[in-house]
Design a protein around this nucleic acid. Structure first.
Lengths: 256, 256
DNA sequence: CATGCGCGTTTCGCCAAGCGGAACATGCGT
DNA sequence: ACGCATGTTCCGCTTGGCGAAACGCGCATG
């Protein structure tokens, strides 16, 4: 594509990104005149792109000095991207180790819009396996990922989540808040959460929360297997291993 | 501006940034269909913006899974911005302390395109003071900032810079490479560089390099004063203090 | 103090490119 | 094998992105 002109490129977008790059890479605030001179574009064009990037929050306009610099939206998404990229990077070796040990699918998920969002999945090398998909959303209350996160939330936040209607996913889905709260307290003690056919028939999962440096649950990892491959002892062993892995990931995150 | 429509905003740019935000904030790779659904835009429009952002390097397109994720150009400028922002933030208190102690102007500069670029300046509280401007470019060989950086460059890089024509800024500008090399070696020993009326008539400056964690000079700080306010003892004292400040800034940078 | 210049902002007419719907291509699931 | 969802290509339309010119403002200079 570098030697072939892409007919779908929207030229104003391309040029505005050049303006953003110039401002972000310059060590100091940039004037409209500097943008015009260095990118060799008409000053009304510079003016429009600077206004657009500022309106979108990617730049800020210092009205006193008539200079532009990087804005909060750019920094926010840069930080989001860095955090997520780093979380995945730190978690992956642990997930691979868990798959190697148990030969079951291991998932990394985040809480997003009051649900669990699957961020990364490393699949077991078996024909019969629990198969989530990256990008899928599932409820908090009926997944091991979700329950692990709920267990570590501050009381007020957890109560808010559990106050919402709790969907029946299977006949075994827990929807009684008191029962759930009791289970979550137990999970907090154990260091891992479990769900048995609460989200998908035939599936058992065990999950553990990944915490930030102040103990807030930012993600969770889980291991999923068909129920018959998860006798009580295996579940407890997997739970302990997930808790240890989640703890290591949390420590690595905090060490930055 | 939030309750008033800005007529200069370029709509495609604004919308494309929304696409970039969506992808950067999503914890996993995003499909064209997801962008279309979540931003409620026609799929050909999604397609165009995704192609444009990818062409610009802000996103990458995983052709196997037909998913988009954050690309190298976005990460590069995010990193550049973070680094510069952090450098300024770490340096500022040290610069303020130096101004407080000597009551002369203190500058932070970077090497940029073979010149020194002034990034931040804290001015002395005196009528007669040396007045640079943020954004100004000056030669390496005739400024304390530049000489401090040159002193710490690897031999090959320093030789390349000194091989270029060395402009006469004042009658005292050094242009003989051997003399400069000898002075730079001395600066390396002292921990600071000086220039006396080599860049501006009447001005004396002393500067020290800020190094990264592998010892490469990424920036420099300097103090500028009218020559008569800089007797030999003051110069030496300022030099030692600048060296100490630069060293502390370097350590803070490395501690991340 | 007046003038000129540089910079940023506003206006205006032009035209081409951005837009979006439709059609097409592909791959996957049933 | 068929239907559906997703991604890509095509096409005609219209409107908004463009850039030159004009205007406003502030600063430097004589």
């Amino acid at each position: 594509m570098s030697d072939k002109h892409n007919p779908y490129v929207v030229a104003p977008v391309r040029k505005a990104l050049s303006v953003l790059e110039l401002v972000a890479e310059r060590a100091h605030d940039v004037s409209l005149a500097t943008v015009t001179r260095e990118l060799k574009i008409p000053k009304t064009t510079s003016f429009r792109y600077l206004q657009t990037l500022t309106e979108a929050g990617f730049l800020i306009h210092d009205l006193v000095n008539d200079k532009y610099s990087v804005g909060p939206r750019f920094r926010a998404i840069a930080k989001a991207d860095t955090s997520l990229h780093r979380l995945r990077k730190l978690a992956r070796p642990h997930m691979h180790a868990l798959v190697a040990e148990f030969n079951e699918t291991v998932n990394l998920g985040l809480m997003f819009d009051g649900n669990i969002s699957y961020v990364d999945i490393i699949e077991a090398n078996q024909s019969l396996r629990i198969q989530g998909r990256v990008g899928d959303r599932h409820p908090l209350h009926s997944t091991a990922l979700g329950k692990a996160i709920l267990a570590h939330l501050p009381d007020a936040q957890r109560k808010l989540h559990l106050a919402r209607p709790l969907a029946l996913r299977t006949s075994r889905t827990l929807t009684d808040v008191e029962t759930l709260e009791r289970q979550l307290r137990q999970s907090l003690k154990l260091g891992y959460a479990t769900e048995t056919e609460e989200n998908d028939d035939g599936a058992t999962c065990v999950g553990a929360a990944v915490l930030d440096d102040i103990g807030y649950p930012i993600a969770a990892i889980s291991l999923s297997a068909p129920r018959h491959r998860m006798p009580r002892e295996t579940l407890a062993k997997a739970g302990a291993r997930l808790a240890a892995a989640a703890h290591q990931i949390s420590a690595q995150i905090a060490a930055a």
